[in-house]
């Protein structure tokens, strides 16, 4: 298996605050990669670096073998233009903690938007595909609803469908269930489980240890901007090696 995402000594700071202090990891193609850790540990920031919503300050980050945000010629780095960054983002779907659906569009319009505007797909084709995707996330009957008329769990599933509409090769999930009522979490996790079974490469920042254990292929525990421990989810979750991991897991499990 080839590496979908590769990080080498990634650093990120916001002003004087260092959020990532040297991340090294590798996400293989087709695997479900879970990132866990206390809040403020930099996991969401790292996720946002992968599609260049945040610029990294040092190190190298590769997606599908290509440098994120830069082009390398010889030993010089050239910043990519906004339009070039946008082209790369087409292949990376992202799901946000707060859904971020477009509130002035119905569910089906939300899903159609990027294919029509970015890829130039015809509206009728995009609509048919959007309808299919909504069906896949179990919301075929909610196509005409505005986000404000949907529950949090339904909104998040529309957001997943919206990301899938661009046929990404990599999906990023930024705490997709953290803003949901407990009883709505299951529906979203079911959709993500289906997606994982279809072979999608997924990086999931989550607090759902059950999901990580069942669906995850790899798991990384982050704290203080570094990877503390990594391995197979079942091993790390049941038999953590580091004191910090043990302390964290004893609180959340």
């Amino acid at each position: 298996m080839t590496a979908m995402v590769k990080a080498e000594g990634v650093h990120k700071s916001f002003g004087p605050v260092e959020v990532l202090t040297g991340i090294d990891l590798e996400v293989k193609s087709g695997e479900v990669f879970c990132l866990i850790g206390p809040s403020g540990s930099g996991k969401s920031t790292f996720l946002r670096c992968i599609n260049h919503l945040e610029k990294i300050n040092a190190g190298r980050l590769y997606v599908d073998g290509e440098l994120v945000g830069y082009r390398q010629k010889g030993d010089k780095l050239y910043e990519l233009k906004d339009s070039e960054v946008a082209v790369k983002r087409r292949d990376i779907g992202m799901v946000f903690q707060r859904f971020n659906l477009f509130p002035h569009m119905t569910a089906v319009e939300n899903v159609m938007e990027a294919p029509v505007q970015v890829k130039g797909v015809s509206r009728s084709q995009a609509r048919a595909r959007a309808q299919e995707l909504l069906d896949r996330v179990g919301l075929a009957d909610k196509a005409g609803n505005y986000p404000s008329q949907l529950s949090g769990g339904q909104q998040q599933r529309v957001a997943i469908a919206r990301a899938l509409a661009m046929d990404p090769k990599l999906m990023l999930f930024d705490e997709p269930t953290s803003a949901l009522d407990p009883e709505l979490v299951g529906d979203v996790l079911d959709v993500m489980r289906d997606l994982a079974e279809s072979g999608m490469t997924m990086i999931v920042v989550t607090h759902e240890m059950g999901f990580a254990r069942e669906v995850g292929d790899s798991l990384v525990f982050m704290d203080g901007g570094v990877v503390v421990e990594s391995g197979h989810p079942r091993e790390v979750l049941t038999n953590p090696q580091h004191e910090r991991t043990k302390a964290f897991l004893s609180k959340v499990l």
């Binding site: 919503l53 946000f96 707060r98």
Partner: peptide, 11 residues
């Protein structure tokens, strides 16, 4: 978040 979501879709 709206701008971010839109950018993340490649717009």
């Amino acid at each position: 978040g709206q701008t971010e979501a839109s950018h993340a879709l490649g717009m």
